[in-house]
């Protein structure tokens, strides 16, 4: 029982949050902050696969988020909501409850396929040249979606709120909160499994030395493909959740600044540390909200904090370690595989 103490505490905590949201104990603002925390955790830990474990420098993570957000919201809106262009809902809106996670997963799958766009050039290019390819992909995705008039172009796309309301009509519980928590747990679980598997070992071998890894019979191309696709797919899930939480997506909200935010969260937590990225995503979201009254000065203070952090603790909060390595006693209370 002692071994599962933290797991149970986490589960009870999530349950309490959902219950509190259900009975109106926390207001909508706090709820949205908690949901953004989950989305940011998914973003930072999925980017950590490529930037941390594999040692590449991908700075276009928001592109995959954008693809996931658009695909999943188009799917849900076409299926369950009244829309000017797509017409009446195809399926009865009551079924949104069942298809919602499926739509978000479809968004993730499509953005994993878009991830191939970055993964294939990465077979030959490394380092800074790959960084450019990711930036270029980010611009291309945004520009491409801006030119698709059918999904709103640069005006953005909306209608997801109807789907969320349709779900609340069936059973009135905070659905998006539940899906966000489930998505976050799913992401952390899958990354944890992935990193400790043979694939994960292969990816850290590529990080150490690509040529040596190839000589040791690591199929580097396959590893890169899998890592990029997993990373972008999870970012797509984050995007799908983001779109349904906000209820409105706009191509410009996934621009290079969003990618920079993802990068910041990864490096704040430490490269190659899953618990580090979770911790830094939570801290970063809280910091953003705490500094909100300062308005624009916020964006001077946050970079300044990061510059100072880089000066005095360049490896990030946890460095290359997990939380369990820093505090070995925690391992007694946590079983997590």
């Amino acid at each position: 029982m002692q071994k599962y103490a933290i797991n149970i505490a986490f589960f009870v905590g999530c349950l309490l949050i959902v219950l509190a949201a259900q009975f109106g104990m926390v207001d909508l603002y706090v709820q949205s902050v908690i949901m953004f925390m989950g989305i940011n955790i998914i973003l930072s830990s999925s980017l950590n696969i490529v930037n941390g474990y594999m040692g590449e420098f991908s700075c276009g993570h928001a592109a995959f988020m954008c693809v996931g957000a658009y695909v999943s919201s188009v799917v849900t809106v076409v299926l369950f909501a009244q829309n000017k262009i797509f017409g009446a809902p195809i399926l009865p809106p009551d079924m949104a409850v069942l298809f919602m996670p499926l739509a978000i997963l479809i968004g993730g799958l499509v953005s994993a396929v878009v991830g191939i766009l970055v993964a294939v050039p990465s077979f030959k290019t490394r380092g800074d040249y790959l960084a450019i390819i990711t930036i270029a992909v980010n611009y291309m995705v945004i520009s491409g979606i801006e030119n698709l008039e059918i999904i709103g172009g640069s005006r953005g796309f909306m209608g997801m709120k109807q789907v969320v309301y349709a779900m609340s009509d069936v059973v009135n519980i905070p659905w998006m909160m539940i899906w966000t928590i489930l998505g976050t747990v799913f992401t952390i679980w899958i990354i944890r499994r992935f990193v400790s598997s043979t694939y994960g070992k292969g990816i850290s071998a590529i990080c150490q030395d690509e040529i040596a890894a190839e000589i040791m019979s690591v199929n580097t191309n396959k590893m890169k493909l899998v890592a990029f696709m997993l990373s972008s797919g999870l970012a797509g899930i984050a995007g799908g959740l983001f779109a349904h939480v906000i209820g409105y997506v706009n191509p410009q909200s996934f621009n290079i600044l969003k990618s920079t935010e993802c990068l910041v969260m990864v490096y704040l937590g430490g490269m190659g540390s899953l618990s580090g990225s979770v911790l830094s995503a939570v801290l970063f979201t809280l910091l953003l909200e705490a500094l909100r009254p300062l308005q624009i000065v916020k964006w001077v203070i946050i970079p300044l904090i990061l510059v100072l952090l880089m000066q005095f603790r360049p490896e990030g909060i946890l460095g290359n370690k997990e939380l369990g390595d820093v505090f070995p006693r925690l391992k007694r209370y946590c079983r997590f595989k």
Binding site: V264, Y267, I296, P303, L304, Q311
Partner: peptide, 29 residues
């Protein structure tokens, strides 16, 4: 200072990104 410490190259890149943001938003503020 980062170069003196022999920090990883990517940390310098992140610092550069942040300096850019500081210049932009400092100007705006």
């Amino acid at each position: 200072p980062l170069r003196r410490k022999g920090a990883h190259r990517l940390y310098v890149v992140i610092t550069a990104l942040m300096c850019g943001l500081i210049l932009e938003n400092g100007n705006l503020a």
